[in-house]
């Protein structure tokens, strides 16, 4: 089977694209330690109130999905993730703050940086029963959808589970034990035609609420998003929704969509 991947993103309204503090990346990996046919993905949401979340997110993304030929990132189980978290914290500590500025120094040391994490792999695409497996810290959510119905969400968050202080991958070393304790592990079996969406909290919260009202329509719409401009209009419209219960929160928005298909795509849309 094949994976068709697309990622849409929008910064907060009124912000520039470079101020987008999420991160998303994915691709097939070559790892002599693991299954031959494997793709891995990561979606992160850097905390606005943390120190230099853009740099922290970039460090995590590029380590988790390294350039071809570089060592592959951690295995998706607690012990390996713990070692990776510690390695990331060490690298961050070694790099230090961006400047000699006293406020930067204080914030770098006392507050540090933080990003919610959803990391997952799709394994066994050449076999009879491909599956996804993932780890999560915080409120970035994976939605596994089949025939416009939700098969599973991971983490399984409800409408009231999105707060202002989610778990995440933190730079402070005293957070390491807590991060591993709260790390969630999940997975599911995939079939031809399945969709996987990975969304940072604003989009995930919107999806969780929207599918309670009109599930089939929501997944149909999400599956049909075909261009960044269409996604941008969708985000703008939903942020303006008068009904607060339906409104998309004005936050950075990221939506990764993976389509699992037995066939190669019949057309390719290239967006600039």
């Amino acid at each position: 089977m094949h994976i068709q991947m697309v990622t849409f993103s929008e910064p907060k309204a009124g912000y520039e694209a470079k101020e987008w503090q999420d991160g998303a990346c994915g691709g097939v990996i070559s790892d002599p330690r693991g299954p031959v046919s494997r793709a891995r993905f990561i979606v992160l949401d850097g905390a606005s109130t943390a120190y230099d979340p853009v740099r922290w997110v970039d460090q995590l993304v590029t380590s988790f999905i390294p350039a071809p030929g570089a060592p592959v990132g951690p295995r998706l189980e607690p012990a390996s993730m713990r070692a990776w978290f510690a390695q990331m914290q060490d690298r961050w500590a070694k790099a230090g703050p961006q400047s000699n500025d006293a406020i930067d120094e204080q914030m770098w040391r006392d507050v540090g940086s933080m990003a919610t994490l959803l990391a997952f792999e799709i394994v066994g695409l050449d076999g009879p029963e491909p599956y996804w497996q993932g780890v999560a810290l915080g409120d970035t959510v994976l939605f596994h959808v089949r025939d416009n119905r939700l098969v599973a969400s991971f983490p399984p968050l409800g409408p009231d589970d999105f707060g202002t202080n989610p778990d995440g991958v933190r730079t402070r070393k005293d957070s390491l034990d807590m991060m591993v304790e709260r790390l969630l592990v999940g997975g599911g079996v995939l079939a031809d035609g399945d969709l996987i969406f990975a969304a940072t909290d604003a989009m995930a919260h919107w999806l969780v609420r929207a599918i309670l009202r009109e599930e089939q329509k929501v997944w149909h719409t999400m599956a049909g998003l075909a261009h960044p401009d269409v996604f941008a209009r969708f985000v703008t419209d939903q942020r303006k929704e008068i009904d607060a219960a339906k409104r998309l929160k004005n936050d950075d928005v990221t939506l990764m969509r993976l389509r699992i298909t037995a066939d190669q795509p019949s057309f390719l849309l290239a967006c600039r």
Partner: peptide, 13 residues
């Protein structure tokens, strides 16, 4: 005041 600056820091510096 420092905390307010932490909360409001967009990018370093």
């Amino acid at each position: 005041l420092l905390e307010l600056l932490f909360t409001s820091q967009g990018e370093p510096g």
